[in-house]
């Protein structure tokens, strides 16, 4: 069991992660393929407008109206920080990069360990904030199911166990084993659960957004 979790399962998890993402990507393009794409008529002629720095700034600020930034700035900051650190912290973690160097002969740049430790703590605090919202806020609780808690656990568990492992709290070998296992579960579940927004965020945000604004209903991908 231990040999399997710290050996072949790591490779299996990465293969499922990459193939799963490729499968979802192909599925996305396949399902959105259509023979003919209509173009919406242009409502008005666009007049080139002279842009001054003030106007650009004003339009940037105006674009924030009606977004989450206006309704819930704390959540906006927490979720932005959480998502950025969720990717950066494990990529630039010294321990991960040393393992990478040992197995592949190359590695990424590593943050100093106290910095990684602090960033992990921030991820965990954001996680606690999201969990608190789900439990305490009626409007969020109303749309929360057990599935959301499971997904939350999948996302937070590698960071919690990693934090314990770094500080060598509890039984170190067991914590490390659970840490590796939780990372593998996260990789395997990303393509097949709502954690897939790791990939689809970019498609939704830029492609579909672009379709309805810049290119008037035409498929841009």
């Amino acid at each position: 069991m231990v040999d399997f979790v710290q050996g072949p399962l790591i490779t299996i998890a990465f293969i499922i992660f990459i193939l799963g993402i490729l499968f979802q990507l192909i599925q996305f393009f396949r399902l959105t393929r259509k023979k003919e794409w209509g173009r919406l008529p242009i409502a008005y002629e666009m007049k080139p407008e002279k842009k001054t720095p003030e106007k650009i700034l004003a339009s940037c600020l105006a674009s924030l109206n009606g977004t989450l930034w206006k309704t819930d700035p704390v959540l906006t900051v927490a979720t932005s920080v959480f998502h950025v650190l969720l990717i950066l912290t494990p990529l630039f973690l010294l321990g991960h990069n040393i393992l990478l160097d040992q197995s592949c002969g190359w590695s990424l740049f590593s943050f100093p360990e106290p910095l990684s430790d602090g960033l992990t703590l921030i991820v965990l605090l954001c996680g606690v904030y999201f969990l608190g919202r789900r439990i305490l806020l009626a409007k969020v609780r109303a749309i929360t199911t057990i599935y959301d808690y499971v997904v939350w656990l999948i996302a937070v568990a590698p960071f919690l166990t990693g934090f314990f492992a770094y500080h060598q709290w509890f039984h170190y070998e067991t914590v490390m084993l659970v840490h590796i296992l939780s990372g593998e579960i996260m990789l395997i579940t990303i393509p097949f659960t709502k954690l897939g927004h790791m990939l689809f965020f970019f498609l939704y945000r830029f492609f579909i957004g672009g379709e309805y604004s810049f290119l008037r209903g035409s498929r841009t991908w």
Partner: peptide, 20 residues
């Protein structure tokens, strides 16, 4: 090395040798 090849498990992770 896999555990089954070893009589007694040595430290396998960073903190097993780099003890805080």
């Amino acid at each position: 090395k896999p555990l089954k090849e070893q009589k007694k498990a040595p430290p396998r992770y960073c903190g097993g040798c780099h003890i805080r």
